[in-house]
Structures are given as structure tokens and as C-alpha cells.
Design a protein around this nucleic acid. Structure first.
Lengths: 218, 218
DNA sequence: ATTCTGTATTTTGTATTCAAAAATATCATT
DNA sequence: AATGATATTTTTGAATACAAAATACAGAAT
């Protein structure tokens, strides 16, 4: 029996594809998205394309200037810092809810995420990046709060922080991740919150550092 | 000279009107939104209506079941509690940013919001509710963080908490508001954060109380 | 009377069409 | 050659058209 994938909503695969294209730089920041052309490229009409673009606009991946057009959002260093402020807020609550609401077996899953890197001599940054994303997504998911989930979708742009490369080397963040995970598994809410806030604010501090470098250089 | 309001985007006024209709109960929770009918009532075609509905969907004001239709979101007590968890996260960061980034004159504006109620013998709940909304919106606005602003739009549904009536009487929350404002004006970040967290978590606690009452009653 | 089934109607999701605005190209004038 | 006015093309935003799915309904079978 063949599994028939029904797309009751064409905008969904279009959305997924566009998101991928933006994340992978196939569509570059600032680029204008000409609707008719893009729709043709993706093999759909403008209607489902527009629906997908509106979702991306909501997630701050694209920008719309009325009567002008839609553009791939340029993410400035300042906005990246803004995202990190939000993530600290969102994820520190999320980790609390996660611990409160999850089973031991669910919490154990966190250990698995960074396992491939614990004894690795050389860490593959792409894989590590994915694990990092996965880790943060898990916290949001297990928090089991639909409003929080929606909010975190807004800061999806954070996934584009890597346009600046990894902010800090895995060797540095790995320890922090392990500390957070330890606190989660031990169900130590204050410790988990503290470690997570620390982790995020160290990255934010690094971004602020870059920002200062940039401004003094020019 | 007459002021001509240009709508370069028809979905904007449609969005505003729909939001109002939902907030004021003109469209009731769970109600199906038949597109053709609604579009006719609002005097537009389905295209701008759909755009507005999609925005409202992102803000969790309406729900979409593919191939079935759009419905006014029912907000359960649990979801209201979820919103309060998010608001505590969002607004405590927001108040920090507000203090960091605002001028004295901007901060002074907070005093004005609850001024009409300081010596009032009997507080008009509708007006107080508006002031409360206004107060929280101001914190988000002055925080001057576009990502945070977008996120707080998601929890717009919180404005519908009043479907359960005011959670706590003005006499109780008024003091808390004054404490927060005092800390803000004094630029005391830790105090402002603490007071705000306290204020929100007391309301959340009240909601949890209601939830327990409800479950024991049935 | 109640459940089942096939048909008609409604409604959604997508494509297409159309008008108006914006961008671009063309041409004249200096 | 540079500037500015005008015409042309492109593109957006809104309306409409259309196909497919969901729903409502009527009549048949139990």
C-alpha cells in the first residue's frame, strides 16, 4: 500500500521550501521576491505562495513594503542581539515548564542530543549547529505551551545567526550545554534556569562585542 | 480639506475590524467564519479577508482546520494560564529594556496611566482594564525590540482574558501597578522585574485557583 | 423510526483575471 | 551628456472563476 501524501494546503510545502531557501542562502538577504516569478519557479500560483510568504513575514524571515514587494529580511547584528534577549526570556520559562511537565524518559532524551560530541576530537560545526537547534526546539516542545511555541516561531530568524558563523566555538558551549542538561535531568529548576540564562547571555555578550568592534573599526 | 485615508492594503482595516469583533464578542468563540458571507458583510472580496484571517491565526485569535474552515479561537482557562507564563517571561525582559533604553520623560509617562484611579472612590472596571492594557503595551513599546514586539502580538489573545471578567479587583492590582511604576521611574531594574513578575504571577495563581474550583465542582 | 447511501449544495483552496500603482525605458530639451 | 517629462512595461493587490472537498439533504432499505 502506497502512502499518499495529501497536501490539503499547498502553502505548507511552499513555506517549507522558501524557509529552506532563505536559511541556505539560495535567496539572499535583501533580495526582492517577485511573486509571479517565484510562483512559477515553485510550480504554484500566487495564492498559496502569498500565504506562505505571509507566514514567513510573521516569523520575520521576509519583509513587506506595501505596493512595493516582499524582500528577504536582512538580519542586522542589533536584531540578532534582540533575538537573544527574547530567547533568554522564552527559554528560561520553557525549561521550567519542561521540567515540571515532562516524564523522566522525556528528560533523558536531552542527554542523547550532544552525545555524539562528548568524546569527539574534532567537532563538525554543521552537525553541532543542528544539535544545538534541536536542543532548543526540544525545550520549547516539551514545555507543552502552545502560546510559547507560537512565540518561539517568531524568533525563527535566530536560525540565521549563522550568517555570522557560529558565535562561539563548540568547545566553549559544549560544557554549558552539559550543565543545562544535567540540571534538567536532575529536575533542578533554579539551576537549569540559571545555566540556560548564562548560556544565552554569554552568546549575546559575544554579539555585543562584535558590534563594538564593528563600530570602532568604521 | 478632507483627510483621505488611503488603504494601500485593504486587509489592514479588515484585520482591525475582525479583531474588534472578536474582542467585543460580536463574533463568539468557536463560531465558524464562513468566508464568502464574512467578506460580503465587510464589503470586500475573500482575498483581503483571508489575508486578515491569516494574521489573526498567527496571533491565535482564530483557528484554521484545513478544508473545513476558520473558527474564532476558544480560549480555555489552561491557555489563559499559558499566556500568563509567556507574559511573565516577555514583560520582565521588556521592563529591563525599557529602563535601559528610555529617557526620563518617557518613563514619567507611566505615572499618567493610572493617575485617574489613585483617589477614585469607585473604579470603573472598563476604564481600568484599558489602562492596564495600555500600561503593558507601553512596556513592550518602549523596550524598542521589534522581535519582542512581534512575540507579544502572539499573546494578543490575553486581551480576551476578560471573557472571564477581571481576574482580580482593581483595589488589589492598583498597588502592584504603583510599585512597578515606582521602580521603573527610579530605574531600579531588579525591583521593577521583581514587582512585575509578582504582579503577573499573582494573576496566574488566581487563574489556577479558578481552574481547581472548576475541576472539583464537576 | 432509524440508518445508510447517493445526490445536490455549499464552501474551501487554488488559479486566473483585472485595475491601479510602481518601475523602467524612451525621448525631447537643454 | 545630463536632466526631466512622458510612455511603456512590470508588478502588486483585489476580485472573480473554477475545481475539489465537505456538508446537507432526500429517499431507500432495514
Amino acid at each position: 500500500m502506497q502512502k499518499i501524501i495529501q497536501h490539503s494546503d499547498l502553502s505548507k510545502p511552499v513555506y517549507d521550501r522558501l524557509k529552506q531557501m532563505i536559511e541556505e542562502g539560495e535567496l539572499s538577504p535583501g533580495q526582492k521576491l517577485v511573486q509571479e516569478k517565484l510562483a512559477q519557479d515553485l510550480g504554484v500560483s500566487r495564492t498559496p505562495l502569498l500565504k506562505a510568504l505571509q507566514k514567513l513575514q510573521h516569523e520575520m524571515m521576509v519583509e513587506s513594503i506595501p505596493r512595493r514587494g516582499m524582500y528577504v529580511k536582512k538580519v542586522s547584528l542589533q536584531e540578532m542581539i534582540d533575538v537573544y534577549d527574547c530567547r533568554e526570556a522564552i527559554e528560561s520559562i520553557a525549561v521550567r515548564l519542561t521540567i515540571e511537565r515532562s516524564s523522566d524518559t522525556d528528560l533523558e532524551k536531552f542527554k542523547k542530543v550532544f552525545e555524539p560530541f562528548v568524546n569527539a576530537s574534532k567537532i563538525n560545526t554543521t552537525r553541532y549547529r543542528k544539535a544545538d537547534e534541536n536542543f532548543h526546539d526540544m525545550i520549547i516542545e516539551l514545555a507543552d505551551n502552545p502560546v510559547l511555541k507560537k512565540m518561539s516561531e517568531v524568533s525563527n530568524i535566530y536560525k540565521r545567526v549563522y550568517q555570522y558563523g557560529l558565535i562561539r566555538p563548540p568547545e566553549e558551549t559544549m560544557v554549558e550545554h552539559m550543565n543545562i542538561i544535567h540540571a534538567i535531568v536532575e529536575r533542578d529548576i533554579p539551576a537549569a534556569e540559571k545555566e540556560l540564562r548564562n548560556h544565552i547571555s554569554l552568546s549575546r555578550a559575544k554579539l555585543i562585542e562584535y558590534q563594538k568592534e564593528k563600530s570602532t573599526k568604521s
